[in-house]
Nucleic acid binder design. Sequence first.
DNA 1: TTGTTCCGTTCGATTTGACGAACACCCGTT
DNA 2: AACGGGTGTTCGTCAAATCGAACGGAACAA
Lengths: 185, 185
Amino acid sequence: MTDGKPPFERIAAAIRRERDRAGLSLTELAKRSGLAKSTLSQLESGTGNPSLETLWALGVALGVPFSRLVDPPRPAVRLIRAGEGPAAHSGQASYTATLLASSPPGARRDLYRIEAQPGESRRSEPHMPGTVEHLVIGAGRALAGPVDEPVELAPGDYLAYPGDAPHLFTALVPDTTGVIVMEHV
Amino acid sequence: MTDGKPPFERIAAAIRRERDRAGLSLTELAKRSGLAKSTLSQLESGTGNPSLETLWALGVALGVPFSRLVDPPRPAVRLIRAGEGPAAHSGQASYTATLLASSPPGARRDLYRIEAQPGESRRSEPHMPGTVEHLVIGAGRALAGPVDEPVELAPGDYLAYPGDAPHLFTALVPDTTGVIVMEHV
DNA sequence: TTGTTCCGTTCGATTTGACGAACACCCGTT
DNA sequence: AACGGGTGTTCGTCAAATCGAACGGAACAA
């Protein structure tokens, strides 16, 4: 949905980048991967529509997790001070979620900072199927997790639960904070 | 390196899973994706070596980020109390990193809880290329980031920086805690 | 110079993935 | 029963991805 058409150019660039990062020549990479030099040459020139088998062999030969060949490049250093950043105050309760990081194109994992006060609990309806949330409590105490199986958490506690099922977050003491990693996978 | 040979079976399963998650028939998916029914049938039966173009078209038609088709399945609810879990005490300084979550096979994003005391700083040599670390301070104060561009952080602060370049973490006050998301991408 | 050995590219032959029609099957209706 | 509409499968054809060899160029030694 966020995708247009196959990222041939990006893959081409990625292959070349990874190849000379590993200090390999076309000939050598061809030998290691079991592919033909010509195939690699064409791929690096953006001409070609590699098969899964070909791409996988490349990933193995280059020692990269494969998605590295198709996914977009990386960011740099970014700092968000406490209180800054896009804060999403929940309509319910005293609950603030600040979006710290999101994977831009296909959105794969978002990072939130949570600040909540005791009171009514925040219930979240299911997100994208396959979503998993990871929660780490920084301060205070909270009751969180799936609505039918919530867990009381203290500072330092870690809880992972499906994000594609109803779940809640309730602060039990004032100024309860935490970090949520939401992976849309 | 963590890879063996192309995950045809996994992709086959993923396609079928995503397809009836979306409530689509083979015929309908064929229409939307612009692919032939026969092609899809063969892919779902594990017979086939799809081209990048084909895989991409599938990802678009199914509305999934593409890596979802090649990557492994999902976990459930998991709880790690403070103090539990596989703790990796750093040889240097008073620094404890507890691994909370890791994506098993292709490893893509790891979640750590950090506990550190003031003293010598912990320097990390570069990890896998393309790695990015996200750091959120829970309590205390710390100096962290790339060695040539460290930042002083207070509770609630968030910092992202390349993990494939030398970086450090120094607690400035006792019992400094934080959460690190390490994405190997 | 000549010979050697790499590099990456180009080209023809062959393998093979994608297509589309025909197929067998199941189900609800007439 | 026979139908029409839906499912997913199988098979022959064609375009294209992969291969392997030959190519031109650069670097270096004898």
